[in-house]
Design a protein around this nucleic acid. Structure first.
Length: 212
DNA sequence: AGCTCGATTCCCT
DNA sequence: GGGAATCGAGCTA
């Protein structure tokens, strides 16, 4: 399969736990007004629908998470911590609300554009190391929520076959920053040894205001 | 109407 | 390793 073959919607029809590791090594093309930025995915997390306590879908459909409950092959973009965005790719049947969080990758095209967006990055490997950094580097915000990933060249997003990661290089572990019962599942997937993979952090409960 | 805290990053010690 | 920044979804009332 040639490197630059577009991935079609049936790729996303499968269960999210199957799609997530299969995304590693694939190329996400983000077409901006300034030109294309391409990202080789190195780290993702699966969020497994309404029964997954770690998922935004856990409490059912809301205005924010509506895209997750929509058709596969679309983006779910959400705003977090008052200043960042994160990007997911929706998987599985409509209403199953499966989504893969794109956590990190290697910028392979348009690194000048990404640098401009991420001036604090000191190394190429830091441009998209972490979900909010990835979204910033690729100029992704809430206006792209619900975008079709499989609409073809020139759309805001496209996914290319790339070079899927070898199975023996894929590692799994608990999801970063997920609390409670959602933390037990090893649904984080990354390419072992890749310098763009973000460091694992366990969930840290935020301290309450000190009561004097 | 008010409150808590999050699928984080950055900067400081 | 810890705290600040910053806003809004979702819960409690």
């Amino acid at each position: 399969m040639p490197h630059r073959t577009p991935i079609t919607r049936d790729f996303f029809d499968r269960p999210v736990l199957e799609v997530a590791p299969d995304l590693l090594g694939r190329t996400l093309v983000r077409t901006t007004s300034d030109g294309p930025i391409e990202l080789r995915l190195t780290e993702v997390e699966a969020y497994n629908g309404p029964t997954d306590p770690g998922s935004h879908a856990y409490r059912g459909r809301t205005r924010r998470n509506a895209a997750m409950f929509g058709p596969p092959g679309h983006a779910y973009v959400y705003f977090i911590y008052g200043m960042w965005f994160s990007v997911n790719l929706v998987c599985g049947p409509v209403d199953s609300a499966g989504a893969v969080l794109l956590r990190a990758g290697e910028i392979t095209t348009g690194s000048e554009l990404a640098q401009k967006r991420r001036p604090t990055a000191r190394k190429e490997s830091e441009l998209a190391k972490g979900p909010a950094r990835l979204a910033t580097a690729l100029d992704i915000d809430r206006t792209l929520d619900g975008s079709d990933i499989c609409a073809g060249p020139g759309a805001p997003f496209e996914l290319l076959a790339g070079e899927p990661a070898r199975a023996d290089r894929i590692r799994t572990g608990p999801r970063t920053g997920v609390s409670g019962d959602g933390a037990v599942h090893p649904w984080r997937f990354w390419i072992e040894g890749d310098p763009t993979v973000s460091p694992y952090r366990a969930h840290t409960p935020r301290r309450r205001q000190p009561s004097i």
